[in-house]
Amino acid sequence: MMLLGTMVVLALATRTAVSLKLSSNDIPETGITESDTVCSGSRSSLSSSGSDSWWYNKTVQLYTNCTYVDGNLVVTWLTDENINYDLTFLRNIRYVRGFVLIAGSDEHMDLSLPSLEVIRGNQTFPYGGNEYGLAVLVTNFTSVRLPRLKEISNGKVIFYANRPDIRVEVRRSWDSIVRNREPGAVNIQGDIMPLSPHSDECPLSCPRRCYWYGAGCCHSQCAGGCWGPTPAQCETCKDFELEGVCLSHCPANHYRHGRRCLLNPLYRGGQ
């Protein structure tokens, strides 16, 4: 384990300009829907060029408003104390065709990927002789929240050398997320804190489902389960969804597209 930690530190410290070799797997299903906003994703891994601020701004530009990453989701080098890092630009990503790599953060903050459902793993992140679909390495995050993660189709999972008391929040069992692959497919150093999508022991005051085994009621706009009390914490929406929030109807400047509310560029207000 000491060798593994040393390898991580060296990789993050040297900032070599050469990206790591990627493993490809021919998994044909794309998962793209007509309502997705597709971005190319990153082709690199632990390497970068330029300053921390340049790299952060490039990352923000790459993934903002993206729902489908046709490549890898890579967020690294959050190490400049003069930058007020804000990772909410990741909130709409629901599908990653390659791997997810989060590495190198000095900030004490939460990382939330509230919409991420599938990590396809058509490319995996090679590390320590293994191939990973999800890797969170050398961070001071207080928590990593993946409330909607359903599947990692290919590659293992590793959380290593992070803040000792990091909380890892998922709603499903890791066995079901990695589809019951071989033992050792999930290596997490930290506190695993599963979120219950619903509970059979809801208090009578809850008209529908509840979360955390009766800790509170799901919002009235939730269908199925939830992982918190707000309309942004629903497993699925009863009526419509706008940027991850469940609504009873779409705002006036939006139009309905299935169950989603999309901005209407022709709206001028009034009639």
Results as ranks from 00 to 15, higher is better:
residue 63 Y to A: 09
residue 61 Q to K: 13
residue 18 V to F: 08
residue 35 S to I: 08
residue 39 C to N: 09
residue 79 T to V: 09
residue 74 V to D: 01
residue 65 N to Y: 11
residue 37 T to D: 07
residue 40 S to R: 11
residue 44 S to D: 12
residue 37 T to F: 04
residue 51 S to A: 11
residue 24 S to T: 15
residue 39 C to A: 09
residue 36 D to P: 05
residue 68 Y to W: 11
residue 57 N to R: 13
residue 38 V to Q: 11
residue 80 D to R: 09
residue 46 L to C: 08
residue 22 L to Q: 13
residue 76 T to Q: 12
residue 38 V to P: 03
residue 15 R to Y: 01
residue 50 G to Q: 08
residue 39 C to H: 04
residue 16 T to K: 09
residue 36 D to Q: 12
residue 26 D to K: 13
residue 69 V to N: 09
residue 54 W to H: 11
residue 53 S to Q: 15
residue 85 Y to H: 06
residue 29 E to D: 11
residue 67 T to D: 06
residue 69 V to D: 05
residue 41 G to C: 05
residue 14 T to E: 14
residue 42 S to R: 09
residue 77 W to L: 03
residue 51 S to R: 10
residue 73 L to C: 08
residue 23 S to N: 15
residue 65 N to G: 07
residue 22 L to R: 15
residue 75 V to C: 07
residue 49 S to Q: 14
residue 29 E to M: 04
residue 54 W to L: 06
residue 20 L to V: 13
residue 16 T to D: 12
residue 43 R to M: 01
residue 27 I to N: 01
residue 55 W to R: 14
residue 85 Y to M: 02
residue 61 Q to H: 09
residue 19 S to F: 02
residue 23 S to E: 12
residue 25 N to D: 10
residue 20 L to N: 10
residue 37 T to L: 10
residue 55 W to M: 05
residue 21 K to A: 14
residue 32 I to P: 01
residue 52 D to M: 03
residue 59 T to R: 06
residue 50 G to F: 03
residue 17 A to F: 03
residue 65 N to P: 01
residue 68 Y to C: 10
residue 51 S to T: 15
residue 15 R to P: 01
residue 77 W to R: 15
residue 16 T to E: 10
residue 68 Y to N: 10
residue 62 L to G: 01
residue 76 T to F: 01
residue 26 D to M: 09
residue 54 W to F: 07
residue 37 T to G: 00
residue 28 P to T: 00
residue 76 T to S: 15
residue 75 V to S: 02
residue 33 T to Y: 06
residue 19 S to A: 15
residue 16 T to F: 04
residue 80 D to A: 12
residue 67 T to G: 06
residue 63 Y to F: 12
residue 26 D to E: 14
residue 70 D to Q: 14
residue 18 V to I: 13
residue 22 L to W: 00
residue 59 T to G: 01
residue 24 S to R: 15
residue 33 T to L: 13
residue 52 D to I: 03
residue 56 Y to D: 02
residue 44 S to P: 00
residue 17 A to I: 11
residue 81 E to R: 11
residue 42 S to V: 04
residue 70 D to L: 08
residue 42 S to T: 06
residue 54 W to A: 10
residue 43 R to T: 13
residue 20 L to W: 07
residue 42 S to M: 08
residue 45 S to P: 00
residue 72 N to C: 04
residue 19 S to K: 13
residue 84 N to Y: 05
residue 29 E to L: 07
residue 37 T to Q: 10
residue 48 S to R: 15
residue 36 D to I: 11
residue 78 L to E: 01
residue 37 T to W: 00
residue 48 S to D: 08
residue 70 D to Y: 06
residue 70 D to C: 01
residue 41 G to I: 03
residue 84 N to V: 08
residue 74 V to C: 02
residue 51 S to I: 09
residue 17 A to C: 02
residue 33 T to F: 04
residue 83 I to F: 01
residue 74 V to L: 00
residue 74 V to K: 02
residue 78 L to S: 04
residue 41 G to N: 08
residue 75 V to E: 00
residue 79 T to A: 06
residue 44 S to T: 13
residue 79 T to I: 06
residue 52 D to C: 08
residue 25 N to V: 14
residue 16 T to L: 11
residue 69 V to Y: 02
residue 38 V to H: 03
residue 71 G to L: 02
residue 42 S to D: 05
residue 37 T to E: 10
residue 24 S to M: 07
residue 34 E to P: 11
residue 68 Y to F: 15
residue 23 S to Y: 07
residue 14 T to C: 07
residue 47 S to M: 06
residue 60 V to F: 05
residue 26 D to S: 14
residue 22 L to V: 12
residue 28 P to Q: 07
